[in-house]
Amino acid sequence: MSELLLQVRNLHVHYPVDGGVSRAVDGVSLDVRRGETLAVVGESGSGKSQTMYGVLGLVPRPPGRVFGDGAYFEGEDLLRASERRLRGIRGNRIAMIFQDPMTALNPFLTVERQLTEVLEVHKGLRRKEARNLAIEMLAKVGIPDPERRIDQYPHQFSGGMRQRVMIAMALLCRPSLLVADEPTTALDVTIQAQILELLRATRREMDGSIILITHDLGVVAGNADRIAVMYAGRVVEKGPSREIFESPLHPYTRGLLASVPRLDAEQKAPLVPIPGQPPDPSRLPSGCPFRPRCPAATARCAQEYPPTRSAGPEREVACWVA
């Protein structure tokens, strides 16, 4: 259980901007264990997607710059792997699904063509074999009448069904890591429930790990074993899901939990908003980037970024005050 599938160490993803650098990811370290779901939580611009793009070699370079102490996947450092090697890993050992399946699926190709291509490229299967496997996978992710639907184009599927096609495509090569980037954000809530159910079943079956990237704390609560909370390009808090929700340590995590309306809360119990807004990653404030919005900030917080320290057996936090 404790075996590490992915170890990211001090990862940076920087982009040049007028007269400076935008620090989209600013020293992120993460571990993903075999068989777990790790949720990476943050708002837009917090660097949660950029972290995975950096690890998987998907940051456009130039202008982007990716560096760090390593991103070890099954023992191999992806930051130092060749583009050719990364292409062999992506879609094969590590698969991805995105918020909007329409941008990830080719609108000019049938679903069959797109699914079988994955198997032909990565597994060297012949078309007929690949087609049979693809139909089997479509049935498994809950697409009715897969023998007929496999010959259709993406636009002939509803949003929820397209996301199922994406998941089928991602699972075809039996990856050991599935990166799901806001997989249900574009979907209605009853369809979201269907897709989350499918992801839970998928993880049980594939015996691999999932990185769930999301801004939605509700989605995290029902689906993650551990959580990493990101703010302004850094991980500010890490720990087991239940502990983070029950005793959040970082003032940002506390603020986030207090500001989200809950369906099961006392009605009209006032929300406690976080004042201000997230910083521009090209103009980060000195010291801790959350300081200008933090109710607990001290003079020290303006001077130095708080180092990540252990806060219990499985917990880590980057805060001078917590």
């Binding site: 809530v189 009853t190 979201q192 429930a193 269907q194 989350l196 159910e197 939605d216 704390l217 509700g218 989605v219 995290v220 609560a221 029902g222 899901s241 239940r242 929700f245 029950e246 939990l257 989200v260 809950r262 369906l263 099961d264």
Partner: peptide, 20 residues
């Protein structure tokens, strides 16, 4: 109602889901 996720792992674990 049953499909709306609640940001609380304990509450989530106890819920009856009706998946349409």
């Amino acid at each position: 109602i049953s499909a709306v996720p609640i940001p609380d792992p304990r509450a989530e674990a106890d819920r009856q889901r009706i998946v349409l």
